[in-house]
Amino acid sequence: MMRTMVAVVVGVFCAAVLAGCSSDPAPDPEFDPASLCAEVHTSGALPECTAGFDEAPYLRLPESSAQSPYGALVADPDGGGVFATTGGDLPVADSVLETIDPQVSEDDSAAAGNDYANLVYRATVSDGEVTELTPVARVSTGALMQSLLAGRSLEGQISEYIGDGYDLTPTLPVRIDLADTVTERDGRTLLPGTVVNATKASHTQDGTALPALADASDRNPLRADFTAGVELERFPSMHSAFDDELVLAWTDSSSGMGVELFPTIADMAELHQLDKEWQVTQHGSPTSGPTLALRLF
């Protein structure tokens, strides 16, 4: 699986040779990390938010000027990245975006590289464009997933098994309940989930009856390694820069992916609204596993 190594590294911030990144490691005198979120650790090179506030916005950025705003670097739906701030999204100079350099990682872990997706920055803005980014704090993946996804449900459809693979069009009703707490395993942050109508009938959030997937008999998508237990994992820049994917893993070697529900710092700070719809397509050959069309509740 492709992973990325990102030029922005906590502790040294950005290498001085990289255009658009501040090489000054001095803390921002106007930034109070204690006000950022409910739980902040300050023992590292950057303060780290490890738990969001109980009520939205779960992450609270300090006030700042239009010329030097706080915010987050996130994927642009039209390609590349934009800088999300309380005043709206700002374009980012190519010299800054080029410091996000996707490469194949030797470390098969979502934690390798991709620091931009876990950093709060203070930007320098010139003529309406971000020309420099200085990291001021880190937000743990656990805090992001706990605040935005834990304890919620995904409802929609899952595709049928058709004998030699899976249909690409989801038609069978499905509900997945997400665990109340994220877990850590082998350096990875995971959010477990359970297909609640795998073997017995259930209901949606609004009370609509859900038949058991097992009732689909030979068309039941849950078979072999595709079981009622799943895990969600966050992968920034999975295949290329800013290809930020949320993965639904059936096993360590079998998973689906989709970009819409990827939780960001901008979502946590309510600079953006987390997408409710999630289209999940199986890695590798799309017909080798179920396709899902889900909505977050």
Rank of each mutant, 00 (worst) to 15 (best):
V10D: 11
W278V: 05
L210Q: 04
W278C: 01
Y70T: 08
V125R: 03
R223C: 12
E30W: 07
G151M: 10
G258D: 09
E132L: 10
L90E: 03
A137S: 11
A56P: 12
R152C: 09
V104N: 02
L222T: 00
Q67G: 06
L59A: 05
D206L: 08
A224P: 02
R223N: 07
L261P: 00
Q67S: 15
S126V: 12
V259K: 12
L210P: 00
L90F: 09
M257C: 13
Q279T: 14
G81W: 00
A93P: 06
A117N: 04
E155M: 07
P69R: 02
D180G: 11
S240G: 10
D177L: 02
P91K: 06
V182H: 04
F83T: 01
F226I: 15
D177Q: 13
V125W: 02
D54K: 14
A201T: 13
D32S: 15
L274D: 08
V130E: 00
L149H: 11
L210M: 12
T131Y: 04
L294F: 08
L73T: 00
A212W: 12
V82K: 05
L46Q: 01
G229Y: 09
A143E: 05
S237Y: 02
D218A: 15
F13K: 03
E260G: 00
E231T: 15
A51H: 06
I162D: 11
R219D: 11
T251R: 05
T199R: 14
T42E: 10
D89F: 04
F13W: 01
A84K: 01
L59S: 01
V104R: 02
G151I: 13
V9D: 06
L232M: 11
V125P: 00
F226A: 14
T86W: 03
L46Y: 01
E184W: 05
L149S: 11
R138M: 09
V12C: 04
G11R: 03
A66E: 10
T141N: 13
